[in-house]
Amino acid sequence: MSDFVTFILAIISAMLIDNVVLSRFYGICPFLGVSKKVKSSLGMGIAVVFVILVATCVCWPLYTYILEPAGIPFMDTVAYILVIASLVQLVGLFIKKYSPSLYKSLGIYLPLITTNCAVLGVVQTNTDTGLRFIDALANGLGTSIGFLVIIVVFSCIRTRLESANTPKAFKGLPIALITAAIMAIALMGLQGLFAGI
């Protein structure tokens, strides 16, 4: 199979079948915290896509060409989190300078991304599982787009839930979590989608 097809397949499987939030449990905090409004969840999702892509492009070469040859692969977590934290700052400064309007809508989510497990989780699994660069990129892209899709869909459901007649004890987070469970069950149905290939 050509590399292109495997690339696309890897994106789809990281995005839907093995969704970050609903089956790998990365990034639950922003998933529950920033999903009250559709607009803010869209902003958070796009910011995450951006940071994960850049972080993958920086951290994979960092590990393969610097940490590993230098004999200190065990410094990976420290290096990654420093890279991610400074990257988030840099991206923030960059956007602020060149597109103030974008900064206005994305800026407040950027600091939250440093503590989003999705970013560190993806970067860490990329090198822990020894993926090639193109696979790492596919994993990053699929994971982050999966996060974007799920958080937007979830926020749409949550805005409806606000006005729904739920029992008093379930108001707010509990019913949102049960909704997430039903979404996870729905995505379980996609497992084995590529079994025939």
Partner: peptide
């Protein structure tokens, strides 16, 4: 035991 159960 699946992810869905954790949310529930």
């Amino acid at each position: 035991q699946n992810p869905a159960g954790a949310f529930i």
